[in-house]
Amino acid sequence: MSTKIALVVRLKVPDTTALSAEDVLRRKMGYGDRLGRLRREDWWLFEVDTGDGARARARVGEWARRCTSLVNPNKHRARVELPREKSGSGSGVRVLVRDRDDVRARSMLAFLRYSLGASDLLSLRSGTLWTVEPGAGEKDPRSLAEGIAATRSRRRGLLANPHAQTFEIYG
């Protein structure tokens, strides 16, 4: 039995990536009024070798506390969620973007096992969790998120390049 737990990590300081993406969407891609705000969080999915949800949460919490590359309390705020749970503050549609070949998670997994002895960590995935908040005039937040999620051409889409990344829209 294993349990999957998501760790969602947000910057306390201004997120320049989200700000730049928002600026380009507004000014260069015509989303001026449709887009309210764009937020970005780091997303990690831990698969822990236990059927006990509380224990799995505790293990993820422990790794997050001991590994500042995951969560550095000086610059991050983190929360533990069930996969695809929509918690935290704010409205908006979630777009979860993951690299098909998740190099980042692989090196983090190796480090957690090597340095923290995380032998009960069966797998690790990483991603970027975007929250697309619609502007005042936007009636259909989901189609807004769909429009900017996948890069199809120079004019269409931004957050994921489907040739290297997958994306899921939820919430």
């Binding site: 690299d99 190099v103 199809r152 051409s153 120079r154 290297a164 990344q165």
Partner: peptide, 10 residues
């Protein structure tokens, strides 16, 4: 006009 590839992380 279509995006047909990506340059992924090394």
């Amino acid at each position: 006009g279509d995006v047909e590839m990506a340059l992924a992380p090394n």
